[in-house]
């Protein structure tokens, strides 16, 4: 007799535990206001990333097409993966001195691990992280980017 009672008690007890779980799923099923899913490609216009989000490395330019990079190459030596290549050039200034300036700033996005050491160690704060995260391309050669814009010069007062 005891075993029969236990048999039915187990069945009803088991069904009860299932119903406890289904109460929660049912609650969310009938209150869709609590849904947290984002409709990603559709909400692209409204999507705002956080300020510190590391999407890609950028070199901010001002309205006169001037950047702050002196071409010192500290970011290049600090990068653990060889992502950055700073190609400097030498020019002669008005008072006859030779000066080293930035010619091309090559950034290979495909090799970057976003450790932020380049931005952190830059002495003239010439680098920053951009918010754009949609970096998919058809060919990996397109992942190599040149960060200084064509014709850009160094900002006055940055040494």
């Amino acid at each position: 007799m005891k075993s029969i009672i236990k048999y039915f008690a187990d069945i009803f007890g088991g069904v009860r535990t299932l119903l406890v779980g289904m109460k929660i799923t049912g609650k969310y099923f009938f209150s869709p206001g609590q849904i947290v899913t984002q409709q990603y490609p559709e909400n692209r216009k409204k999507l705002v990333m956080f300020d510190r989000f590391k999407g890609e490395l950028i070199m901010p330019h001002n309205e006169n097409n001037e950047h702050k990079c002196t071409g010192c190459g500290i970011c290049e030596t600090n990068c653990p993966n060889g992502t950055i290549e700073v190609i400097p050039t030498r020019i002669e200034t008005e008072d006859g001195k030779k000066k080293r300036i930035l010619d091309t700033y090559v950034y290979r996005l495909g090799m970057c691990t976003f450790c932020a050491l380049c931005v952190k160690t830059c002495p003239s704060e010439a680098l920053a992280f951009g918010q754009d995260f949609e970096q998919a391309v058809f060919d990996r050669t397109q992942l190599t980017k040149i960060l200084n814009k064509p014709g850009s010069t160094i900002m006055k007062g940055v040494e």
Partner: peptide, 20 residues
Amino acid sequence: EETCGGRLLLSYNCPGGVMY
């Protein structure tokens, strides 16, 4: 993401403290 800039791979520590 708001504090460290990364979601999974944080890289937030540095010898001597934290990055930001």
